[in-house]
């Protein structure tokens, strides 16, 4: 499947992925991360049950200290 991840097109062998799978696959191990799926904010407790499919738009945003 092909998805838009953080404004870039990315291809995965899987037919679908949960948010947890995606973060693992991309090695996004940041403690502080905000996830959006097709425009909606996804809570941490929903990472295992939110399914990402072909054509979906996902943002996994890691915020850095400083200001």
């Amino acid at each position: 499947m092909k998805i838009t991840l953080n404004n870039n097109i990315e291809t995965f062998d899987n037919e679908f992925l949960t948010v947890t799978d995606l973060l693992k696959e991309k090695k996004f191990t940041f403690k502080i991360i905000t996830v959006k799926h097709n425009g909606h904010f996804i809570k941490k407790e929903d990472y295992d049950t939110t399914i990402i499919r072909d054509g979906d738009i996902v943002a996994a945003i890691h915020m850095l200290t400083g200001g």
Partner: peptide, 12 residues
Amino acid sequence: FDLAEMKQMIIE
């Protein structure tokens, strides 16, 4: 904000 935790808090 300064801290990443606070940035995430307000975004969410």
